[in-house]
Amino acid sequence: MESAETTLARYGMVIDLDRCNGCGACATACAVENNVPPANTSATERTGLTWLRVQRVSNGRQFPQNRAVYIPISCQQCGEHTPCVSVCPQNAVDVNPETGVVSQVPARCLGCRYCMAACPFHARYFNWFDPKWPDGMEATLNPDVSIRMRGVVEKCNFCHGRWQAAKAKAAANGARDIDPADYVPACVDACPEKAITFGNLDDPRSDAARASKSANAFRFLEKLGTDPKVYYRSDRAWVRRLADADVTARESEASRG
């Protein structure tokens, strides 16, 4: 009923890797907005909870020819054959037809982690620990986003709370569609370099749609045919060649030598 009244959108983002300086403001803003708790005492890089993780990847060459690129990786919001959706036994993962965003319903999640195994982008995180904030810091939590319990999988949902708020605002103003300026995910808002462009990829007037069609735009693991809605762009050929590489493994190997 609702979708019949509102325009269907296909939200996505384009991340300019030549502008990203790896400051981490996007990852921080994401955690603050979505009530992602601080690291548990025993959390490690493998058991951490980071809806948006910035990977540093080098070109592998020796100093001083060595160059690095920072790649923010969150849920890529696959549009076709969404692997996490098809494996979830609980219907806890679904694609919202109104936004194209892959949604995660923690309350339904059993914690089987099939979706994590299926995700080719390693963009899903299992909540290994009880969510805890230092005493008193609960007062800083965002009331628009519920807290998830240990034992469920979490991931980026393009700040669903902000989309709902934008929808409520549009409804209050008697508008059918939301104002694009009212729905901007926290990471986009926080980026000091304006490296992330967000918008409706189906709207040719949106900056995101235009940027996604630029010459040097690419998507990670496009060959899998999952139609991710997160695009990247770089003028550097070696960066574009990373599109089909496992960037997480690559950097870990470099660290190990």
Binding site: G24, T28, A31, P38, A39, A43, T44, L49, Q62, E251
Partner: peptide, 28 residues
């Protein structure tokens, strides 16, 4: 700093953690 910055220091490889050092493989 906010404990949430543990996202950058302990739960990802973006920032190296305190008490760590880096050198080139050739030097090693």
């Amino acid at each position: 700093v906010s404990p949430v910055l543990s996202k950058l220091y302990r739960e990802s490889q973006l920032r190296r953690s305190p008490g760590s050092a880096t050198l080139s493989p050739r030097t090693a």
